[in-house]
Amino acid sequence: VTLFVALYDYEARTEDDLSAHKGEKFQILNSSEGDWWEARSLTTGETGYIPSNYVAPV
């Protein structure tokens, strides 16, 4: 399991995006899409895309 933590708040801009709150942890499901990674929030269980530069490894 690849875990990352949000460094900043991010507000989803499309229905495919996933909002993130600073300190929230995510499981990365797919990081092969360049700057946008598919992730699952460990807080809400929701999945979507987050900007890779907004997260760091735990």
Rank of each mutant, 00 (worst) to 15 (best):
V1W: 13
T2K: 12
T2H: 12
L3F: 11
L3H: 09
L3S: 08
L3D: 08
F4C: 12
F4P: 04
V5R: 01
V5I: 12
V5Y: 13
V5L: 05
A6R: 00
A6L: 06
A6K: 00
L7W: 04
L7K: 03
Y8I: 07
Y8C: 15
Y8F: 12
D9F: 06
D9C: 10
D9S: 06
D9Y: 06
D9Q: 04
Y10P: 01
Y10K: 00
E11K: 09
E11W: 09
E11D: 09
E11R: 06
E11M: 10
E11L: 09
A12V: 04
A12L: 02
A12K: 09
R13Q: 14
R13C: 15
T14D: 12
T14G: 15
T14V: 06
T14Q: 09
E15N: 11
E15F: 10
D17H: 15
D17N: 09
D17V: 12
L18T: 02
L18V: 07
S19V: 06
S19W: 05
A20Y: 06
A20H: 04
A20Q: 02
A20S: 05
H21Q: 11
H21S: 11
H21P: 01
H21T: 13
H21E: 08
H21G: 05
K22G: 03
K22H: 05
K22R: 11
K22V: 12
G23T: 01
G23S: 02
G23F: 04
E24D: 10
E24Q: 05
E24C: 05
E24F: 03
E24M: 03
K25I: 15
K25H: 13
K25N: 07
F26P: 00
F26S: 00
F26N: 01
Q27D: 06
Q27E: 14
Q27K: 06
Q27M: 13
I28Q: 01
I28W: 03
I28V: 08
I28H: 01
I28L: 06
I28N: 00
I28S: 00
L29T: 05
L29K: 04
L29Q: 04
L29E: 04
L29Y: 06
N30L: 07
N30R: 07
S31T: 13
S32Y: 10
S32K: 11
S32W: 10
E33D: 15
G34H: 11
G34L: 10
D35Y: 13
D35S: 09
D35G: 12
D35E: 12
W36T: 06
W36V: 09
W36F: 12
W36G: 03
W37Y: 10
W37S: 02
W37G: 00
E38K: 13
E38V: 15
E38M: 15
E38W: 15
A39G: 04
A39M: 14
A39R: 00
R40W: 05
R40N: 02
R40D: 00
R40Q: 08
R40H: 04
R40E: 05
S41I: 03
S41W: 02
S41T: 00
L42K: 04
L42S: 03
T43P: 02
T43R: 12
G45F: 07
G45E: 04
G45I: 03
G45N: 07
G45V: 01
E46P: 01
E46D: 08
E46H: 12
E46T: 06
T47V: 14
T47M: 08
T47C: 09
T47E: 08
G48A: 00
G48F: 05
Y49I: 08
Y49W: 14
Y49H: 07
I50N: 00
I50Q: 00
I50H: 01
P51H: 09
N53P: 05
N53V: 09
N53C: 15
N53Y: 12
N53S: 14
Y54V: 15
Y54E: 02
Y54M: 15
Y54S: 12
Y54H: 10
Y54W: 08
V55G: 02
V55H: 00
V55C: 05
V55W: 03
V55E: 02
V55I: 13
A56C: 11
A56F: 08
P57D: 04
P57W: 05
P57E: 08
V58I: 13
V58C: 12
V58R: 00
